[in-house]
Amino acid sequence: MSISTTTIHVKDLRKTYVVPERDAGLKAAIRSLVRRTSREVKAVDNISFDVAPGEVVGFLGPNGAGKTTTLKMLSGLLYPTDGAISVLGHVPSRREKNFLRQITLVMGQRNQLQWDIPAIDSFELNRAIYRIPEAEFKRTRDDFIELLDLQGLVNKPVRNLSLGERMKMEIAGALLHRPKVLFLDEPTIGLDVTMQRRIRKFIAEYNHRYSATVLLTSHYMADVEALCRRVIVIHHGQLLFDGELSALARRFAAYKTIEVTLADASADLGVYGEVVEKDAGKVKLRVPKAETSRITARLLADVEVTDLSVEDPPIEDVIETVFAQEAVL
């Protein structure tokens, strides 16, 4: 992919933190006053990827994998230790205004709206900072209010809103300048399922309407499944996988699920594999991937089966297996 057709271009990206280190206890604490020992931590270790305009990419990894560090480098908050980044043709760490005007960063755990005043006044502040033309601003704002169901809430002081309402407000505020690139770090964290769905729908709609590029991290696989066709998995700062979500399951799932409906509900299938669910005549079996076809054949031969299907395990389970592997591929 050439630079001109990519929105985000990352090549051999590295970020190393130097962290002070000391043993536990008072003695060690006192010793560290005089002599500091430190250690280098590779938060991001040689990552490369490209994102095309309009793509929604899920950024997956366990805590401490380097997701947030990467997002911060992409949004210009952190300097890379090594490697090259280009976002919309800009080098993020230069923090040029023209670059900053086209991106946004939303961190689910940190607020930026003014606490004591209604969000609508905070929106006004953003309009001025981003120099959004009045007419365009009003149109976008009213669109967002409608899409996110914010009528009646925008006029309440932010402190009186629920967590979910506040998050919707935060997202609306962060997108008023209609950024072309969105960096969303856990945008649905701590929210209930309905609210998560609401926000997901909004992000999808925004992406669709403005052909915006979205890079999203989330611990909720539902977010990723609903929004991202492509996922990038990083672990210990390294890129583990970059491709379609469905391919991730195919590649990493060690197990498959065989779901059978039995004519005789009392049959015991424990010998064929691990029974994960049993409901009347329906049984879910977990079997090693490599043996799926053999076991299926045996099942069909031995037991009277009225229906049988083989499925990849839920994506959560796949991710868990991926992260459980200590050895990096």
Binding site: G76, L100, I103
Partner: peptide
């Protein structure tokens, strides 16, 4: 939260 101030075009 300084991150938010630093990602503003000002």
């Amino acid at each position: 939260t300084l991150d938010y101030a630093l990602t503003k075009p000002a």
